[in-house]
């Protein structure tokens, strides 16, 4: 099995620009034009000030591990050769309420620690898909 057999993201009309940026190895979040709040996942409105005006802002791709799991059960055959693997819930350095999920790259699941600093890495799966993963920094 390989990364290419993982479930593909079901990209929608809100998320398409985000995935296209990831394809270019750029990590973006939405930024409210009126109150400056950063948000992810993409939405058509700012949940804080209700502004409909937003742009895309680059983030550094750095964060800290807020929580994580080490998965052992093979819930889907595509992951049969990858267990045990870690999935991280990463708090981005730009804001306390800005999170992304991703798997651990370039380290052993047993080495994950609370608050561990991580860096986003971009893994090109095939001609159409790039995934954001996280490595210790």
């Amino acid at each position: 099995m390989s990364l290419g057999e993982r479930p593909r993201p079901q990209v929608d009309r809100d998320s398409a620009p985000w995935w296209e940026a990831v394809r270019r190895h750029e990590l973006l979040v939405q930024e409210c034009v009126d109150c400056g709040t950063l948000r992810f996942p993409p939405r058509a409105i700012c949940g804080r000030c209700r502004s409909r005006r937003s742009g895309w802002a680059p983030v550094r791709g750095t964060g800290r591990v807020a929580s994580w799991i080490v998965n052992h059960q093979v819930f889907m055959r595509a992951f049969a050769d990858e267990v045990p693997y870690a999935v991280l819930h990463v708090r981005l350095d730009e804001a306390d309420d800005l999170f992304m999920y991703g798997d651990l790259a370039g380290a052993d699941p047993a080495d994950v620690t609370p608050g561990m600093p991580v860096q986003a890495v971009f893994t090109d799966i095939d001609d159409d898909l790039t995934l954001v993963r996280w490595r210790p920094r």
Partner: peptide, 15 residues
């Protein structure tokens, strides 16, 4: 929002 999780092998309730 499963699109931001499932490709990393994170989609089952126990996870």
């Amino acid at each position: 929002d499963a699109q931001y999780q499932a490709p990393y092998g994170y989609f089952a309730p126990p996870q």
